[in-house]
Design a protein around this nucleic acid. Sequence first.
DNA 1: TACTGCATGTAAACCGTTACATGATTCG
DNA 2: CGAATCATGTAACGGTTTACATGCAGTA
Lengths: 191, 191
Amino acid sequence: MNTLAYGLLSLLTHVPLSGYDLTQRIQPFWPAKHSQIYPLLARLEKYGMVSCELVQQSDKPDKKVYSLQEKGFDALREWLTVPAAEPVMRDELMLKAFCVSYVEPAVSRDLFAARLEHYRAKLLRLEDKIRGVRQLANADEAETPPYDSPFFGPYIMLNKGLMVCRTNIEWCEWVLSIIPGGTSATADRKD
Amino acid sequence: MNTLAYGLLSLLTHVPLSGYDLTQRIQPFWPAKHSQIYPLLARLEKYGMVSCELVQQSDKPDKKVYSLQEKGFDALREWLTVPAAEPVMRDELMLKAFCVSYVEPAVSRDLFAARLEHYRAKLLRLEDKIRGVRQLANADEAETPPYDSPFFGPYIMLNKGLMVCRTNIEWCEWVLSIIPGGTSATADRKD
DNA sequence: TACTGCATGTAAACCGTTACATGATTCG
DNA sequence: CGAATCATGTAACGGTTTACATGCAGTA
């Protein structure tokens, strides 16, 4: 039972999902490839944490849909009582940023401009998703789903994503504004 | 040549360092244990990227001090021209947050309160560090070291750390404020 | 026709952590 | 006297990525 295993159980609390679906949905929180997910699901089934049902489809390949079992739910509740480990963040850009002074401004400019675009695109995706969650939860703009709602978790996580994403955009714009020789094409916006 | 290898070269641009020092300094940007660093440094020396000098010490154990070589510097410049890979973030709390609705508020409250403390402590460390860098760079409050300065890189990174840390604190406080049954002992501060 | 999405799996290689191993000095 | 810091290394294990493998349906 590693963290990824608990992550899969977490996603299965809301609704039964296939290995394929789980692989897509866990990406934002705990990136993992299907080659890691499929064997893990088999193990979770062997342990009785989840059950598996083969669903036949005509237009698409058949799939295995996993549901959380009582034993898995117990394991999850137990896991939730132990404090979360410190987050681990590995960002190549942070290493590159360390020695930008040693290359021409144009080179580092490209680096931060690319990252800025990445975050701007991510922000749009997140705003879209949060609209989706609010619709499902029947919540107005600026209204939060109640604690008991299954949308509470996704909602607070999406908000974290939004806040951090905006901060990163701000940071990229600031860095671009202090790298000399900017054409101000990407590094606009003075605050 | 993996990312960690380039990270070590990056740190060596400023000043020669021992494996022990490198292990300490790379933690905030690319967490790694000494067991990974020492063999990598030996490999980097074999490739001619760094040179190694044995420094004898009387009060402390002898150490190997590594310096960046021309070949390593070339590799680094080459590496800086390719766009940085997307950051990878793995946070157990995000997985736990997903299913907080399924446990009592007190349990999730502990989770976020602990994380809030973690970020508050981190913020203090960062503020301390940025004061140190500003002193070394002879910069006033709110003044940024010039692009050519070796302090430029560390300065922009520390600022990112600060900004993201503050955002995380804000988020934790917000989450604690919307979890029902709060004693407002840890979740104070209404904005 | 070629690519993308759906869907599942295995094997090899690589990355990262934990544990094993040693030994001096300094501080409480 | 025990713990922390400095300092370097290896071995085993577990986590993660990349590559191999297959196959159908819809779209450009």
